[in-house]
Write a protein that binds this DNA or RNA. Structure first.
Lengths: 183, 183
DNA sequence: ACTAACATGTAACACGTTACATGATTGT
DNA sequence: ACAATCATGTAACGTGTTACATGTTAGT
């Protein structure tokens, strides 16, 4: 049940409407927890009914009208509780690896398409890596960062590390596949 | 819709019953696409109704009776089609990163629990890494591997690379958090 | 009046998780 | 007879995905 906590985190960082949240989930928070606008509206409704957030009083709630939410004390407590919770890491779930394994059993004959796919993924991961590196340059130049900034930098570092891993691995994979493929 | 293809791949590697599949999804295939037995039985039912797999004829299908499945030509075709499909990589979805970001907004005061959690994750990733390395030593010693084995080795290499990344990153994170935390 | 962009929402379905139910086989 | 284990399955619910519906605001 992490979407709920992703939303609470985002709203604590800055009160927002559903659409604003959706856009913030296309970057920053969304870099490691993505969500569509439908998920977000559904979860905002639940959070409101649970008394963890409430809409800012200024705007009357009607369809098509912007509705900005704020976290209530109960929401902050819930988030703090969740941060301290014990949770095992989820196993890897990566369709590309599954597809390589499937290619091994159905035969590598049609693997020209697969090779193109690997190149395409390589380009996407390289682009994501650049984006993270730009954010790092822009937001984390400080010499004496506050504790919160050190945490955020750490999280960004994970993104950079993971994208670096994928670009290296995909490069290796392309060498393997292209380099010595038998006839 | 990858579970379907994970199951087809597993059944092509070796015809199995639902419970056997469940066990194989706790290792090998499951290392990068996990599934519970309920998911597997549900999907086996769908695959059978879709005519992509069928139970081996020997055993009459009654509850509590072992039921072994085999992939039909249509299933193999479907898998081959899927292997060549274009699919974008999914963004990272890692609750631990979300929790660090949440810790940044609710305050790092209760971060002693978080630090223990990071250590716990470190140990888990180290164990997983050793497991992969043992598999590599056992299964991929050959000098002239077949194309299928090169692919499978590549996939295992991704697992090793990812676990290596996490152990290094978690070690860094613990240094960051423990090393210079302000009073 | 029309259009585009903004903003919130419904509906339907696929996938994932947890708890539980039922029957078959094996060992004591 | 009983318990443990193997094996398949149902039910309920939460989460994620896709397509579509509805209303508002601003520009022309």
């Amino acid at each position: 049940m992490s979407l709920r906590h992703a939303i609470l985190t985002a709203l604590l960082e800055r009160p927002s409407s559903g659409l604003e949240l959706t856009r913030r989930f296309d970057k920053s928070i969304g870099f490691f927890w993505s969500a569509t606008h439908q998920q977000i509206y559904r979860e905002l409704g639940k959070l409101e009914r649970a008394g963890l957030i409430h809409p800012l009083p200024q705007q009357q709630p009607s369809r098509g009208q912007r509705k900005e939410y704020e976290v209530l004390p109960g929401g902050r407590e819930e988030l703090a509780r969740w941060v301290g919770e014990r949770q095992d890491p989820k196993p890897i779930r990566e369709a590309l690896l599954l597809r390589l394994r499937a290619a091994a059993v159905v035969g590598v004959a049609g693997a020209t398409g697969l090779e193109a796919e690997l190149r395409r993924h390589l380009a996407l991961h390289q682009r994501q890596l650049s984006e993270y590196q730009e954010i790092e340059k822009r937001d984390f130049g400080s010499e004496q960062p506050a504790a919160e900034d050190r945490l955020r930098h750490l999280v960004l570092g994970a993104g950079i590390g993971l994208e670096t891993f994928w670009t290296e691995w995909l490069t290796d994979a392309l060498t393997e596949l292209g380099g010595s493929s038998p006839g």
